[in-house]
Amino acid sequence: MRFSSIYIGDVKVKAIKYKVVIRVGFLGAFQIGVRSVGVATPEEVTVNLVKKSHINFRPDKRLRKMLQNVEFTHSES
């Protein structure tokens, strides 16, 4: 399987266009989201209302469960 920066860019474009959720094994899922200004009617919606894009991460239930049992200890360097 070939990975390149162009291929990664293509995946991002498709994810935005088709609202794809990308699952990464037991880690969880990534999804593209946007922040925008709210408006009252669909006619008021424009691209200029989008203020920021970001990536949402939703951890898998197995990862969330594992994090509930994590223990921390102090280690000396």
Rank of each mutant, 00 (worst) to 15 (best):
M1E: 04
M1Q: 02
R2V: 13
R2N: 08
R2D: 07
F3H: 06
F3W: 12
F3M: 04
S4Y: 02
S4Q: 03
S4F: 03
S4H: 07
S4I: 02
S5C: 03
I6Q: 15
I6Y: 06
Y7E: 10
Y7R: 02
Y7G: 01
Y7K: 14
I8W: 05
I8E: 09
I8A: 11
G9Y: 08
D10L: 06
D10E: 15
D10G: 11
V11Y: 04
V11S: 05
K12S: 10
V13N: 14
A15Y: 01
A15H: 04
I16E: 04
I16H: 04
K17H: 08
K17F: 03
Y18M: 03
K19P: 00
K19R: 10
V20K: 14
V21G: 01
I22E: 12
I22D: 03
R23N: 10
R23Y: 08
V24S: 06
V24H: 10
V24D: 14
V24F: 13
V24L: 15
V24E: 13
G25M: 11
G25P: 11
G25E: 10
F26K: 12
F26C: 01
L27V: 07
A29C: 12
A29G: 15
F30M: 15
F30Y: 14
F30C: 13
F30G: 06
F30I: 00
Q31L: 01
G33K: 00
G33D: 03
G33E: 00
V34Q: 06
V34M: 12
V34I: 11
R35M: 07
S36M: 04
G38H: 03
A40T: 09
T41Y: 05
T41L: 07
T41K: 13
P42K: 06
P42D: 09
E43M: 02
E43W: 00
E43Y: 10
E44C: 00
E44G: 13
V45S: 12
V45G: 08
V45D: 09
V45M: 14
T46F: 01
T46R: 15
T46D: 11
T46H: 11
V47C: 07
V47K: 12
V47D: 06
N48H: 11
L49I: 06
L49K: 08
L49F: 00
L49W: 01
V50H: 05
V50E: 07
V50P: 02
K52W: 03
K52H: 12
K52L: 06
K52P: 01
K52S: 08
H54L: 10
N56I: 08
F57E: 00
R58H: 06
R58W: 00
R58K: 12
R58D: 12
P59H: 06
D60L: 03
D60P: 02
D60A: 11
K61I: 09
K61Y: 08
R62N: 13
R62T: 11
R62P: 00
L63D: 05
L63R: 03
R64A: 10
K65D: 09
K65G: 09
K65E: 13
L67G: 05
L67N: 14
L67Y: 05
Q68R: 09
Q68M: 07
Q68I: 04
N69K: 08
N69P: 01
N69H: 08
V70E: 10
E71L: 11
F72R: 14
H74A: 13
H74D: 12
H74V: 13
H74Y: 14
S75A: 02
S75Y: 09
E76K: 15
E76H: 12
S77R: 07
